[in-house]
């Protein structure tokens, strides 16, 4: 009986230790209990990367905004949209318009670009993307409303960044919307709440002022 009790105590200690370790790992040190906060923590630590993907329409597919060997020094503020979205994506559009205005009125040109990437390839035709651009007054030299070249590229980007779009039951989507600040290498350097566009823009401008090699993936 004593042996059984000792064995049990040892197994229980291993189980409890394993559980504590798993919870500690899962929550990044008991700090991030949701996937979204984990994603933001990864971005804050510089460990969230967007793979180089081709954006644009056939036959002009092939614009790759960021890549590991880029030397443009350009910083991107990226959001993910679908143009049929009646609320949030329109709100994001309004915020991008404000950011565009600020960027257009800078005394010196800042290498910051705005990108609204559609994840709804089936629903968002080039015409609908153009209509969204027009509705929000997007100036293509500052703000591009675009979609990945194909579904495979879209899935790759969304998976890498932890963007999940789920059907809302009324024909639309619910997704973790936020403003992502990416450097030329595709490294996410900050994720800002929807509504916090000024902080996102400030972060992007600060990042654009850093030396070009900053943040390059080893």
């Amino acid at each position: 009986m004593t042996d059984g009790l000792v064995n049990t105590a040892c197994v229980c200690a291993v189980l409890a230790g394993g559980f504590a370790f798993a919870v500690f790992e899962q929550t990044h040190g008991l700090e991030n209990w949701t996937f979204e906060t984990q994603r933001r923590q990864l971005a804050g630590d510089g460990r969230l990367w967007a793979p180089p993907i081709a954006l644009g329409e056939k036959p002009d597919v092939g614009w790759v905004p960021w890549s590991t060997d880029a030397d443009s020094g350009r910083v991107y503020i990226v959001d993910f949209i679908y143009t049929r979205c009646p609320g949030l994506c329109e709100g994001l559009g309004a915020q991008f318009r404000l950011m565009q205005r600020e960027l257009q009125h800078q005394h010196e040109a800042v290498p910051v670009s705005l990108l609204s990437i559609s994840f709804d390839l089936a629903g968002d035709t080039p015409e609908q993307l153009a209509a969204y651009s027009q509705r929000h007054g997007a100036d293509a030299s500052v703000w591009r409303v675009i979609r990945p070249a194909d579904q495979k590229e879209a899935d790759r980007l969304l998976r890498a960044l932890g963007i999940v779009a789920i059907a809302d039951g009324t024909g639309g989507f619910v997704h973790n919307s936020a403003l992502h600040v990416l450097n030329q290498y595709g490294q996410v350097r900050g994720i800002y709440d929807y509504g916090n566009w000024q902080a996102a823009l400030d972060g992007a401008e600060r990042l654009a002022g850093e030396p070009k090699s900053e943040g390059a993936r080893e």
Binding site: M1, D3, G4, N7, T8, V11, L15
Partner: peptide
């Protein structure tokens, strides 16, 4: 032998 009275 490793589960005394179901504790494990």
């Amino acid at each position: 032998k490793m589960d005394y009275r179901g504790l494990t």
